[in-house]
Design a protein around this nucleic acid. Structure first.
Lengths: 153, 153
DNA sequence: CCGATCAAGTTACAATTGTAACCATTGATT
DNA sequence: AATCAATGGTTACAATTGTAACTTGATCGG
């Protein structure tokens, strides 16, 4: 087979490798909360951010999870309709809305956290501890890239 | 702030880290071929797979790049309409279609490959060689996970 | 105080995507 | 041969998403 051009080896191309990995892993995890709670990815992410960090604005959720603001807006709307979060206007700056989980939201969150921990340990149990530390080191390196955070999505 | 539940630390949760990384890097790279060639992600991926591997069926592209078959179907259709690939039926099994880049398709591919190499070396230039090797080692570890390939998307 | 400008968040609309149903073809079974 | 299940690939339709425009409110310079 004659190829008169230098090919790109996809298996060595970072965006390709990352998105292939991310898609299969995220999809796998999504099956859990999709089936059991009827949630989608933006909803789960917003819930997770609020559960971990307590009280946030939509913009802060955007920045933290690197999601487009319309995604966040819709996720927040949906979580609020389910009664899982409360919105509270800032009195000083009435454009800003603080978001916080309700007790019901916290209960859902707790259940999903259990799922997440289980999922993570299933994955980690297939790695040796040195492999695990390599993976963590690599992720930290990649997360330092200036690319991250530059995008408004 | 009283949180009466054990939180999940998103910054340590693999699906979260991977998708945040993947989305920002892929988006960054996508800007190039989107602006210059009006291509979307599935189109670029199909082109890249064909450019590298020569002649493939749609199903093979699905497996290789972990994309849903409808995505691939549409990407192939679009590439074919631009005259960048040719479809050829298998005579033995007339369900199967072999796909192959045309000379014009190969020219586009070559240009995009140059972009890709440049993109990759920009990223790699910000890492030391030991960091780079850590990243590659980690990606190989993650790619061995049995999760990959289990999904039909 | 008034207009200009900018930020937070929403929404309308178009494009992209996933699910499920569908053809067309093949292979296996009877 | 006739039927049935399985496979490669497409398509209709609904859900999800991104872009751009918008609303509301704050700020800043005159």
């Amino acid at each position: 087979m004659n190829k008169a051009y230098a090919p790109l080896i996809l298996e060595q191309f970072l965006p390709f490798r990352l998105s292939r990995l991310s898609e299969s892993i995220s999809l796998k995890f999504a099956q859990h909360y999709k089936r059991e709670y009827g949630m989608n990815r933006p909803e789960w992410r917003a819930l997770a951010a609020l559960g971990q960090l307590g009280m946030l604005t939509s913009t802060q959720i955007c920045q933290h999870s690197n999601m487009h603001k319309t995604k966040v807006s819709r996720a927040v709307q949906s979580l609020s309709q389910r009664g899982w979060l409360l919105r509270k206007r800032d009195d000083r700056d009435r454009r800003i809305e603080y978001l916080q989980l309700t007790p019901m939201g916290k209960r859902r969150y707790t259940k999903l956290v259990a799922l997440a921990h289980q999922f993570q340990s299933e994955i980690e149990s297939t790695m040796s501890s040195s492999e695990l530390s390599t993976v963590n080191k690599a992720l930290r390196i990649l997360e330092k890239l200036e690319i991250n955070g530059t995008s408004t999505q």
